[in-house]
């Protein structure tokens, strides 16, 4: 299963990240560090690159991020994201942005080893100035497929006949939040805060809040 995880990780470890402000800048390249509660206490590093799409008269931003929990460093829990972001419509500095991420998540607990794919679709509406931005966001993450391999401990202690394999439709999360940021020279600082619930409006496992601090550096 670990080999499968690594191979699958290679498919998606190219891209996606947090909101970098270079929405309108063609061919901008950014590296960034992301710290926060999302959904556990995590640290992530990412890279973003804008690509002009002349036919749409838009810049498509491709991003990639790798994140791991940090308060208890455990490389068996991680998330890799690959995605894109594109402004849909805008009026002056008011812009509606679409964000799409494919995520690979791994989680090892006393009960199981899990490796899953999810798709995150997000909409941001905000004021994007070259020096700062403020935006509201609505986000839906759908868990597409997850491979669960149960531990011997789980089988002995709880359920010996637990089925290992690919599980479809293991749920989803809805997030609403606010984010903002400002830039000084090549550096940008972003803050993001939000709350999330499950797709059926139940509380998630653990804390139902997100908060991120993102530090970007334009290459």
């Amino acid at each position: 299963m670990k080999r499968v995880s690594v191979i699958l990780a290679l498919f998606v470890c190219i891209v996606q990240a947090r909101e970098v402000m270079n929405l309108m800048e063609p061919e901008a390249k950014t590296v960034y560090l992301n710290l926060g509660l999302d959904p556990a206490f995590v640290a992530g590093v990412g890279y973003a690159q804008s690509i002009p799409i002349p036919i749409l008269n838009r810049n498509l931003t491709l991003t990639g991020e790798a994140a791991v929990p940090v308060l208890l460093p455990d490389l068996k829990d991680y998330q890799l994201q690959a995605g894109s972001r594109i402004p849909l419509i805008g009026y002056n500095n008011l812009v509606l942005v679409n964000r799409l991420n494919l995520k690979l998540s791994a989680n090892q607990t006393w009960m199981f080893y899990a490796t899953g794919f999810s798709l995150e679709e997000g909409i941001l509406l905000g004021y994007f100035h070259p020096r700062f931005f403020v935006a509201g966001e609505f986000d839906y993450t759908k868990f597409l497929v997850t491979y669960y391999q149960h531990t011997e401990e789980y089988r002995e202690e709880v359920y010996k006949d637990a089925n290992d394999g690919w599980y479809g439709n293991t749920g989803g999360m809805l997030t609403v939040g606010l984010q903002g940021g400002f830039s000084i020279g090549r550096f940008e600082l972003g803050l993001r805060a939000g709350a999330f619930k499950t797709e059926r409006w139940n509380f998630p496992s653990g804390f139902p809040f997100q908060a991120n601090l993102t530090m970007n550096y334009h290459l």
Partner: peptide, 17 residues
Amino acid sequence: AEWLNDLMWMNTHISPD
């Protein structure tokens, strides 16, 4: 605590619905 970390990280692949 590992259990709390694991519990919160579950939100990346399964929702308790």
